Simulated assay, not measured.
Amino acid sequence: MKKRLFFNKYNEMKYISNLDLLRVMDRLLRRSGVPIKYTQGFHPRPKISLGNPISLGTEAFNEPMDIDLKEEMTNEELMKRLNSKEILGFEFIKVIDIDGKTSIVQDYKDMEFEIGGLGSSINKFIEFISQEEIILVKEKKGKTTSKDLKPRIKKYRIDGEKLILVLESMSPNSLLKLCGIKIEELEIKKIGMVK
């Protein structure tokens, strides 16, 4: 029985890496008495799938996670058990049933971000993403490759003093690095996945 859970990760929890998040989830599921399935083999792992990694220091909202249960459980009971542990800066907000043929990465390619911060940095960033092309040049094993990141910028708009940005399978961090803006200058929130 597969379930897709949606969670918020904010405040101090934004400093938990993706790998640590999997460990937190494993412990939380066990402590909550959720009958999770485990992989076979020498080092069994819980059957948990996350989407694209959340950048360290980024708050994430409506973030999906798939789990595989070995017993029937209602969505209400599952959510009640998981939220009963009250982890500061972390909460589950929704649970849905899914079939085994779907995956988060296939279902959600686009991610929506809210970016705020200093006006000059935001203006510089908007000017940068407004270009016709945004070329990323990489060198690996003596070979140089280049890729245009512009097609991955699906849309953006200004909402008050915030920039709302929709990106395909990418975090704003790589764009900020190319633009020469330090991540600490801006406040980045991943506000959801777009189907």
Rank of each mutant, 00 (worst) to 15 (best):
14 K>T: 10
86 E>G: 04
19 L>N: 12
18 N>F: 15
176 L>K: 02
50 L>R: 03
180 G>P: 07
129 I>V: 03
86 E>P: 05
118 L>W: 14
60 A>N: 05
188 I>Y: 00
87 I>V: 06
173 N>T: 09
148 D>C: 05
127 E>V: 07
30 R>S: 10
91 E>G: 06
193 M>H: 11
155 K>N: 10
127 E>W: 05
149 L>Y: 02
57 G>C: 14
76 E>D: 14
110 D>M: 04
51 G>C: 00
22 L>E: 07
94 K>G: 03
62 N>I: 06
99 D>M: 03
109 K>S: 01
23 R>P: 07
112 E>I: 10
28 L>V: 08
160 G>M: 09
57 G>H: 11
52 N>Q: 12
121 S>L: 13
120 S>P: 07
116 G>I: 08
6 F>P: 01
114 E>G: 02
101 K>T: 13
93 I>D: 07
92 F>E: 00
164 I>R: 01
17 S>I: 09
32 S>T: 06
180 G>H: 09
173 N>M: 10
21 L>V: 11
71 E>H: 12
50 L>D: 06
8 N>V: 03
65 M>A: 12
101 K>C: 08
110 D>W: 00
61 F>H: 01
152 R>C: 11
59 E>P: 04
153 I>V: 13
18 N>L: 15
192 G>D: 11
19 L>I: 15
37 K>R: 13
130 S>R: 08
69 L>A: 07
65 M>H: 01
131 Q>E: 15
114 E>V: 08
31 R>M: 14
117 G>T: 06
35 P>F: 01
101 K>V: 05
70 K>S: 15
133 E>S: 08
7 F>L: 07
118 L>C: 15
57 G>Q: 11
117 G>E: 09
101 K>N: 12
22 L>F: 11
83 N>T: 06
32 S>H: 08
193 M>E: 13
155 K>A: 07
140 K>E: 13
87 I>T: 01
99 D>N: 15
148 D>R: 06
195 K>T: 07
4 R>N: 01
33 G>W: 12
152 R>V: 09
92 F>L: 13
153 I>C: 06
81 R>L: 07
101 K>F: 05
178 L>D: 04
161 E>G: 14
141 K>Q: 14
82 L>K: 10
151 P>I: 04
98 I>L: 04
11 N>P: 04
184 E>C: 05
32 S>C: 12
121 S>P: 02
174 S>K: 07
106 Q>W: 10
145 T>L: 11
43 H>T: 12
50 L>N: 03
8 N>K: 04
131 Q>I: 06
25 M>V: 04
27 R>T: 11
145 T>G: 09
186 L>Y: 00
95 V>Q: 03
68 D>G: 13
182 K>W: 10
179 C>Q: 00
73 M>W: 08
